[in-house]
Design a binder for these strands. Structure first.
Lengths: 344, 344
DNA sequence: GTTAGCACTCGATGGACTTGAGTGCTAACA
DNA sequence: TGTTAGCACTCAAGTCCATCGAGTGCTAAC
């Protein structure tokens, strides 16, 4: 078992070094920098074993070794050492939330920027609003022009959506207010996913004019999307890694970041409150076969789910990335708790 | 004058060819492809003159010539030939506007994508809301939680802004509605830029509770920004040009696209309804010294100003780009007119 | 089991040479 | 006087080749 432990240490050293330098690691490097008790020849033997076991690849005979995806997997699952964040970094993360501005997009943007800045990878922040488990608290119609209103929906846990709606006929503001109150009473507690049907049901029992309005609203509501915004920050970071000094590779990557569908499928992890690391082929996307994607989801008090995804080369500084994402979660919940206290 | 005309034609041929190939153009190329009546030796003499006049640069003795920024300037100002857009392209541009979805960000996104797709350059769409010349039509407070409301401001020409506001105390929805009506009456016609002050003035004459609410609103309103969203599309296009095969250059460019301040200063052209071309140093930004930026602004019915900016190498296909931007303007005003008809 | 030693591999580096696209200049021509 | 053919010259890019050095694998000795 002692031997196994040594192999393990050597593998870890190789991965650490490769993550740092992006250069194939040779036996002498390990012997000098990491395992001074052992000669390079011994390391060589071990490395040869590790290659047979599938943890190392060699680009060609006379270069060093580079970690395989299997090695990264092991590294992420078992070898990670906690990476201590600096006080500044922690403060920086906190500062993303800790502000009066409640615009979700702004917070996402700040977060994406901050995380990209600290890690030097590319960050995507997606905000989803799963409709299934959300119930309507109330709705209000606000006139903005003769035949145009904004439909505001507020759910029981406080999420707000706004949709502009064009009407067929002008309606008096006071009437709109009355209708809003009427609908709020009738629809309170209705799941958001059933809203469309409920509106139509109510429409059936109302006089023509009212019925028409309700059907217009129902039509509008139907198309409101589950996935909200996706904000990406730190794209230019990608280009600072030698693995993307090939412009064609970089272009493919950038183009993935610009394709909403692909980003959604990347960020659409099903677990919540947990951090997922996908290495190379595990991303299920050909273009990302030498990238890693780390995602973390946080469910907000108002039912929104925020997913943060970090994209970088497979030799990513997983330790730091995970620490940052953990800290993001911690700061977020600190903030939520603080808001709770405030409201109590 | 005949000579001048010939020089002119030769210069145009050189620029055209260089825009197409990105390769220094030699005298033989011109003689074969563009001016078959003239021998390469004659062209050479002319080219030498053009170099003396500052329209051409030569990378080194034995390469061809490339157009100088001065040449591009002349090209854009005088040599441009109308580039006919395909029926598909025109339909594509129309389709960006012609939809029920009124979310401004979505339209911007679609536009950015469409223009990038057609031109193969990078497109930024900025939406500004100049507050000076806008007057309030009415406002409304919509409750979303115990102590949280959304402040909705509608201007006389129909622009809508929404800001979430945290209150110090819970307020009954019916009271909020009454307050909204009261404030709308008092503030109707007040310029948006004076809104802050007006709210404070009104607050002075009201009982404590009301006064407090008004001051909270005033505080919130104060920070609403002039520049709205900036949406960028087609970043990966940049990497398809040989001028950015140097990763470092590409990184600088990408990083400009990610810096909101720089983008604002790029897109903040003062003219409206006109198209501006800035070539290399004319952009006033070191990072863009071998890029060109073409911007066009369109004032919308509701007072918003949309600025579209195209970024590409200085050897940009100016003809096509200008045609596309002209078509965008045409489609936009078609749409506005159609809406007018509809509302009549 | 560990290590020193040595032959071998193979990409990277750099110099010498060749190639070819292009220029500038001169002299002849219409 | 403008145009052109011809020719010497320039210079980046490509090819070939030798060298270098980091690295491996294997063997034999400790």
């Amino acid at each position: 078992m002692e031997l196994l432990d040594r192999k393990y240490r050597i593998l870890q050293a190789i991965i650490d070094d490769y993550i740092l330098t992006a250069l194939p690691v040779g036996s002498r490097t390990i012997s000098r920098k990491y395992e001074q008790k052992l000669s390079s020849a011994t390391i060589r033997n071990e490395m040869s074993d590790l290659e047979d076991l599938g943890y190392l690849d060699s680009p060609h005979t006379s270069a060093g070794r580079i970690p395989s995806n299997k090695a990264y997997r092991l590294y992420v699952d078992q070898m990670l050492q906690p990476f201590p964040l600096s006080v500044e970094d922690i403060a920086y993360i906190r500062s993303c939330f800790d502000t009066r501005s409640h615009q979700i997009e702004q917070i996402s943007m700040r977060l994406a920027r901050a995380i990209s800045g600290m890690t030097n990878y590319t960050t995507a922040v997606m905000t989803r609003m799963p409709r299934d488990d959300q119930k309507l608290s109330h709705m209000q119609l606000v006139p903005v022009a003769d035949r145009r209103v904004i439909l505001i929906l507020v759910t029981e846990n406080g999420a707000v959506t706004q949709t502009p709606v064009d009407l067929d006929a002008a309606i008096d503001p006071d009437v709109l207010y009355t209708v809003s109150k009427f609908l709020s009473k009738r629809l309170e507690g209705v799941p958001m996913s059933k809203l469309h049907q409920s509106l139509i049901d109510i429409a059936a029992g109302e006089p023509e004019e009212m019925s028409k309005l309700l059907r217009t609203l129902a039509a509008q509501d139907d198309e409101s999307p589950d996935v909200g915004s996706i904000v990406v920050g730190g794209r230019s970071n990608l280009l600072s890694y030698p693995e993307y000094s090939d412009v064609e590779k970089a272009r493919n990557l950038l183009s993935v970041l610009e394709t909403k569908d692909k980003m959604i499928s990347l960020l659409n992890t099903h677990g919540e409150m947990e951090i997922t690391v996908r290495i190379g082929p595990e991303t299920g996307m050909e273009e990302l076969k030498d990238c890693s994607v780390v995602t973390a989801s946080y469910r907000m008090r108002d039912g929104r789910v925020n997913t943060i995804g970090l994209i970088g080369p497979t030799r990513m500084q997983y330790g730091k990335v995970l620490s940052v994402l953990n800290q993001v979660g911690r700061s977020l919940y600190e903030l939520l708790d603080a808001q709770d206290d405030e409201q109590r």
